[in-house]
């Protein structure tokens, strides 16, 4: 086999391997309440999935399971072809570097400056000297209009700037899988569009996959290739064309599940 053919084969294998794969996933709480069961989906290179859930806790738990922060009570989950039971402690930390997770409560380290927060991973994993790591993040800081606030601590920034700094921190890692909860939270329309552009570039150029949890059905137009809807412990899978956000929204409204402030920015 020629060298080029070998490279092609390895590349094809890599592309074929799903970035995230769940089979019959189940999560039950200690009191026996099952939030979801028999949940299966695959997230391939460059794909974008959306999770819509009522209650939203199901989506949060699923995102945390995908981020390796909690373990499912049943079923199989694998990242980049690696099964969860094959990963040991240090392997888990290596895997987390390949996952960008922005939870709605994700925070920055409060006693570090924004610059240190964003370049922390580079300083720790890549043994960069301070100036080197700062240079690497400068471009991103300028793009997110955080450059002039780089020496401030998180408490000195607005919610929007803090949220952007969290996104910047995840982007610097250059992960292959992004797990985002309420991506529009605390962001104005202009900044949200900017963020979407950045993520679109990641998806197209680097083949990054996205799993986005939201309570707003319209998010599927901006983020999704497919959508998973959790409803009363049941899980339904739709392709983009099959899903009608307005029907979902109406049914949610009837139940009074959505809060008005959570519609902001969409």
């Amino acid at each position: 086999m020629g060298r080029q053919a070998l490279i092609d084969r390895i590349w094809l294998e890599a592309v074929k391997t799903p970035i995230l794969s769940c089979e019959n996933l189940e999560y039950c709480e200690e009191d026996g309440t099952c939030l979801f069961s028999e949940l299966s989906f695959r997230l391939e290179t460059g794909q974008r999935g959306v999770l819509l859930a009522d209650p939203h806790r199901c989506a949060t738990i699923l995102l945390k399971i995908c981020a390796t922060l909690i373990s499912p009570t049943g079923g199989q989950i694998s990242w980049f072809g690696q099964n969860s039971d094959q990963i040991d402690g240090p392997g888990l930390y290596k895997l987390r570097r390949r996952i960008g997770f922005v939870h709605r409560e994700t925070s920055l380290i409060s006693n570090m400056t924004i610059l240190d927060n964003i370049s922390l991973g580079l300083q720790y994993h890549e043994e960069m000297v301070l100036e080197q790591s700062y240079d690497r993040v400068t471009e991103l800081l300028k793009q997110f209009e955080l450059y002039e606030y780089r020496f401030l601590r998180p408490a000195e920034l607005t919610f929007e700037q803090r949220r952007l700094a969290v996104y910047a921190r995840e982007l610097v890692k250059k992960p292959q899988l992004y797990l985002l909860e309420h991506p529009s939270l605390d962001l104005g329309e202009r900044v949200y569009s900017l963020l979407l552009d950045v993520f679109k570039t990641c998806s197209i150029e680097d083949g990054c996959a996205f799993l986005v949890a939201s309570i707003i059905p319209e998010v599927i137009h901006r983020w999704g290739d497919w959508v998973l809807v959790f409803d009363k412990g049941q899980c339904h899978h739709f392709e983009v064309g099959q899903f009608d956000p307005s029907i979902y929204r109406e049914s949610m409204k009837r139940r009074g599940a959505l809060l008005s402030r959570e519609w902001r920015g969409e």
């Binding site: 981020a67 930390y93 570097r97 996952i99 994700t106 925070s107 920055l108 409060s110 991973g121 720790y124």
Partner: peptide
């Protein structure tokens, strides 16, 4: 107090998601 705040404010979780073992760092 610092460790307590870091735990409550989920900063420890953030470190873990950076691939940094908080017990080491």
């Amino acid at each position: 107090i610092e460790m307590g705040y870091m735990t409550v404010l989920r900063e420890i979780e953030s470190l873990e998601m950076q691939g940094i073992d908080p017990l080491h760092f």
